Amino acid sequence: MFTGLIQETGRVLAPPPRLHIRCRLAGALKRGDSVAVDGVCLTVTDLAAGTFRADVMPETLRRSTLGRLRTGSEANLERAIAAGDALDGHLVTGHVDGTGIIRSVAPEGNALVYTVSCAGKITALLAEKGSVAVDGISLTVVSVSTGIFSVSVIPHTRMATTLKNKQSGDPVNIECDPVARYVHRNTTAPPETIKRTSTFLRTLQENGFTGDSQ
């Protein structure tokens, strides 16, 4: 699991499927660790001085933007959280729901508003003032309608992530709040699936991942 708070942007030394990235974060990793690259959960397979490697399978390349990474590309990085770590962003699994396209980047006061188009099945899981991970970055949804949503980004977040390089027409990875996935499934699935999902949601509630824990 991750929080959506990017710890560093790394530099791609070799693109997928054998992804090789240079970063300071590599010093805190070990083989087998999980690391989110542009919001996609990958497993560290090799480490060298200041670098790590991770294998990217075809399914991941189909469902994310990682296939667009090239030598020299910059990527958002976050190490998986450990038990007891602060959850300062929101719960992010690293399993993206799909990709979207930035349609506009517009200034608003001290912020920039990014408007993103995507599949309707993704926006069905978003809500105004809810959370969404865009390229692994925990952001708050400003507005949403079928097939399009917007987020507002402060200067610190923009400059500390790859958003500083993004412009209209660029693709991004999108992951909805995982709780929203199960709520949606719980209201549309067959009864037996609803029963299993309810058990999962109760576990989240009991462990403080939703606001209704006692």
Score class of each variant (00 low, 15 high):
145 S>R: 15
16 P>G: 05
40 V>K: 01
42 L>Y: 09
105 V>K: 04
28 A>Q: 13
103 R>N: 12
53 R>W: 00
16 P>M: 02
76 N>W: 13
35 V>A: 08
83 A>I: 04
55 D>H: 12
87 L>V: 13
48 A>E: 15
116 V>M: 04
165 N>E: 12
70 R>G: 08
174 I>F: 00
84 G>T: 01
13 L>D: 11
63 R>C: 05
148 I>G: 05
153 V>N: 02
34 S>F: 00
214 Q>K: 15
149 F>L: 03
151 V>W: 04
138 S>W: 00
124 A>H: 06
124 A>D: 14
83 A>S: 14
209 F>N: 01
122 I>V: 11
15 P>F: 08
66 L>E: 00
105 V>S: 03
41 C>E: 01
170 D>I: 00
58 P>V: 13
90 H>K: 07
103 R>T: 14
4 G>Q: 05
153 V>P: 02
172 V>R: 02
128 E>K: 14
42 L>P: 00
156 H>A: 13
83 A>H: 09
92 V>F: 04
31 R>E: 15
144 V>A: 07
51 T>Q: 11
139 L>S: 02
114 Y>D: 04
120 G>K: 10
170 D>G: 03
213 S>I: 11
12 V>T: 01
74 E>V: 05
194 I>L: 11
38 D>W: 10
109 G>F: 07
211 G>Y: 01
63 R>F: 09
139 L>I: 00
152 S>G: 10
170 D>C: 06
173 N>S: 03
25 L>M: 10
91 L>Y: 13
145 S>M: 11
155 P>Q: 02
135 D>Q: 08
138 S>P: 01
179 V>H: 04
4 G>K: 01
10 G>S: 06
39 G>V: 06
98 G>E: 09
111 A>N: 12
36 A>R: 01
112 L>I: 07
116 V>R: 02
151 V>D: 03
175 E>R: 01
93 T>Q: 14
94 G>Y: 04
84 G>M: 10
1 M>K: 10
60 T>E: 01
211 G>R: 13
171 P>N: 07
152 S>W: 01
112 L>A: 04
62 R>I: 11
111 A>D: 15
